Simulated scan of single mutants.
Amino acid sequence: MKLSFLDYSERLNKTLASADEAAIEALCETLLNAWKDGKQFFLCGNGGSAGNAVHIANDMIYGIDRKTGKGMRAHALPANTSILTCLANDEGYDEIFAKQLSVYARPGDVLLVLSGSGNSANILRAIDYANDHGIETFAILGYDGGAAKERAAHSVHFAIDDMQISEDTQLVVMHYAMQWLADKAASVNA
């Protein structure tokens, strides 16, 4: 089968059309309330999802309120290679995100995990830590959603067996959230 851009974009559009809008709106509302209350927003994922976490953190820190510079306190947990390699070496790869949450996060903060499979041990451990410590948990997932679909308090799940489209959905949802929050910036930083 020859892959064409049109085929790829049609599969992406079909996947996005299946979105649970209520779950996405719940994510947006939770982020808005966290922003208003000065809470922190943590993101994590592996591989391309880790790259997306870093990108999204940037959007939340700067992109949602360029006028006043009072964006959200967002942190991409995969961003610091010194911390990641230290924790992986000393505590095990499964703990690289949960251990950071144990230092930085407080009750009322928000965690978003990004994953294709929803089964990576380190994101599951982060969700479990967050759930046990009063941190609101969300996940944007592909494939069948994996274990994260049930463990996260809120899941935005796209049933697509394609890692690249799964990663695309992460950015589309969060770019929408960024614009949605930017539209509310005046009410947050009045």
Rank of each mutant, 00 (worst) to 15 (best):
K2E: 14
F5H: 10
E10Y: 06
E10L: 13
L12F: 08
N13A: 12
S18Y: 03
A26D: 06
A26S: 15
L27F: 09
C28T: 06
E29V: 15
K36N: 11
D37T: 12
D37I: 04
Q40Y: 12
F41D: 01
G47H: 04
S49Q: 02
N52Q: 09
G63C: 00
D65H: 08
M72G: 02
P78L: 01
P78Q: 03
P78A: 10
C86S: 11
A88G: 13
D90R: 02
I96F: 00
I96H: 01
F97R: 00
A98K: 10
L101S: 02
D109I: 06
S115Q: 08
G116F: 07
N119H: 11
I123T: 14
I127Y: 00
Y129I: 03
G134D: 12
T137P: 10
A139Y: 09
L141W: 10
G142S: 08
Y143S: 12
G145S: 08
A148D: 14
E150L: 14
E150H: 14
E150W: 14
A152V: 11
H154C: 06
F158V: 01
D162C: 03
D162P: 01
D162Q: 09
Q164A: 15
S166V: 12
H175C: 03
Y176Q: 07
A177P: 04
A177S: 09
D183Y: 07
V188T: 07
N189I: 08
